Simulated scan of single mutants.
Amino acid sequence: MGNDATHRHDAATWSPLDSDDWYTTRNATTALRDALLAAGLEKDFPYLRAEMNAFGQGLVELGRVSPATAERLAELLRLALAAGLRRLEESGAEPPEHRSGRD
C-alpha cells in the first residue's frame, strides 16, 4: 500500500540529488563562478557555493566579501546595465521596466 511507512518520503532518506532544484542551483552557481572568473574575481568570492536549505529550496551562497570587492562588483554591474541600455537604444527597443525584486 502506498501509504505505509516504507513508501513515504522522509528527511532521513532525502537527497538533494533527487531534486531538480539542486541541479538548477548548481547550474546557477556555475554560471556565476564563470562570470566571476572572466572578471578576475575568482579569489574574491571564497565562499561561493550551491546549497539546499532544510525545505529543499536551492540557494546560492555568495558569502562575505571585502568592501573593495563589493565596489568592484557594483561597478561591473553598472557597466553591464549601461551597455545593455545602450544596445537597446541603438536597436530602438523599449527598455524593460526596472523591478525592485520585492514583488
Rank of each mutant, 00 (worst) to 15 (best):
residue 44 D to W: 01
residue 78 R to Y: 03
residue 24 T to I: 11
residue 91 S to M: 07
residue 70 A to F: 04
residue 90 E to S: 12
residue 39 A to T: 02
residue 84 G to S: 11
residue 42 E to G: 13
residue 61 E to L: 03
residue 58 G to L: 05
residue 82 A to Q: 11
residue 77 L to F: 02
residue 25 T to H: 09
residue 96 P to A: 13
residue 67 P to D: 12
residue 31 A to C: 00
residue 49 R to E: 11
residue 46 P to V: 08
residue 80 A to V: 02
residue 26 R to T: 04
residue 35 A to S: 13
residue 53 N to M: 05
residue 64 R to T: 10
residue 95 P to Y: 04
residue 46 P to L: 06
residue 60 V to L: 07
residue 53 N to D: 15
residue 34 D to Q: 13
residue 92 G to P: 03
residue 76 L to F: 07
residue 77 L to E: 08
residue 59 L to R: 08
residue 69 T to E: 07
residue 29 T to C: 15
residue 31 A to L: 08
residue 94 E to W: 01
residue 83 A to W: 01
residue 26 R to F: 05
residue 24 T to V: 12
residue 33 R to Q: 12
residue 37 L to K: 14
residue 64 R to Y: 07
residue 50 A to W: 01
residue 26 R to S: 09
residue 67 P to V: 06
residue 62 L to V: 10
residue 81 L to C: 00
residue 89 E to N: 12
residue 67 P to Q: 12
residue 82 A to L: 10
residue 52 M to F: 02
residue 88 L to G: 10
residue 84 G to R: 11
residue 49 R to K: 13
residue 82 A to E: 10
residue 97 E to H: 05
residue 86 R to N: 14
residue 68 A to R: 12
residue 89 E to G: 15
residue 91 S to G: 09
residue 62 L to I: 04
residue 29 T to V: 10
residue 92 G to V: 06
residue 27 N to A: 15
residue 23 Y to F: 14
residue 34 D to K: 10
